[in-house]
Simulated assay, not measured.
Amino acid sequence: MDRYSSLIAYHNWANRNTFDQVKSLSTSEFEQHLGGSFPSLKLTITHLLISDWMWLNRWQGNSKVTIPADWDTSTVGSIEAIWRPIQEKIEHYFQADLTARLEETVTFIAVSTGDTYTVPLWQTINHVANHGTYHRGQITNMVRMLGYQPVKTDLFIFYNEENKRE
């Protein structure tokens, strides 16, 4: 697996592990406002879901991406029903060796500003991995605030698990 495919695999692995812990919490804990850029676990998880959706679509050539109006993100179960297939599509998209594609460009319109960007694929992969790590760190803090031990999602742990499989 090349390093960029590995970063995507890590991103999905860490999101799944984080989500598996979050879905074991009560609804009140899931929705409790604890602070941060997205003040609850529900809102932070939903942001990660939306980000994965947007990047998958951008990678597939859709420069202007909107959130489907029929999405139900009201419960942990409804979020999982939307997010798991997106993660599978991302994994499928990056299954092939990316070496020859890394300099291909991705053009997209930022939802927040309306600005248009054109950047190499490899930069978007680094961004997605970094962005996900940032928000999973916020989730880790929220889980601790609720009195639980958060799951470990360090990149080193992912690599260690992958090395054991080889």
Rank of each mutant, 00 (worst) to 15 (best):
W53T: 01
W55E: 03
T73I: 14
E104W: 06
E104L: 11
V111T: 06
L102K: 08
W59T: 03
T124H: 12
W53K: 00
V65W: 06
N62M: 11
N62D: 09
A69S: 13
V65G: 07
V119Q: 07
I79W: 10
Q87D: 15
Y117G: 02
S112K: 00
F108G: 06
G114I: 01
I86R: 03
V111D: 06
R58F: 06
E88A: 13
D72W: 09
L102A: 11
P120I: 03
I82E: 12
W55A: 03
A100M: 06
W122Y: 13
G114R: 04
T116C: 05
A81D: 12
K89Q: 15
T99A: 15
F94E: 09
V65L: 08
I109E: 14
T75V: 09
H92G: 06
N126Y: 09
I82C: 12
T73W: 02
Q123G: 01
E91T: 11
D70S: 13
D97R: 04
W53E: 04
P85G: 11
T75E: 09
E104S: 14
W83N: 12
A69Q: 13
R58I: 03
M54R: 07
V65K: 05
T116G: 01
S112A: 10
T118P: 01
T75S: 15
E104P: 04
D72G: 07
S78L: 10
V106G: 10
R58V: 03
K64P: 00
S74Y: 02
K64D: 07
W59A: 09
S74E: 10
M54W: 00
I79M: 15
L121I: 08
Q95K: 13
R58P: 02
D115Q: 06
V65H: 03
T116V: 09
T113F: 00
W71L: 15
P68L: 09
L56E: 03
I82W: 10
L98W: 02
K64I: 08
V106E: 08
A110Y: 00
G77Q: 14
W83G: 11
S78E: 12
T116D: 05
T118D: 03
I125E: 02
H92K: 10
R58G: 08
L98D: 07
P68H: 11
A81M: 11
V111N: 03
T124K: 13
T118A: 09
W122T: 01
R101L: 09
S63I: 01
R101C: 08
E103M: 07
I86V: 15
Y117C: 01
V65D: 04
D97T: 06
T66D: 12
W53P: 01
W59N: 03
W71F: 15
V106Y: 09
A110T: 01
T113P: 00
I82M: 13
R84I: 15
G114Q: 03
D70K: 11
Q123N: 03
L98M: 11
H92L: 11
T105K: 14
T105Y: 05
I90W: 06
L121C: 06
D72S: 12
E80D: 15
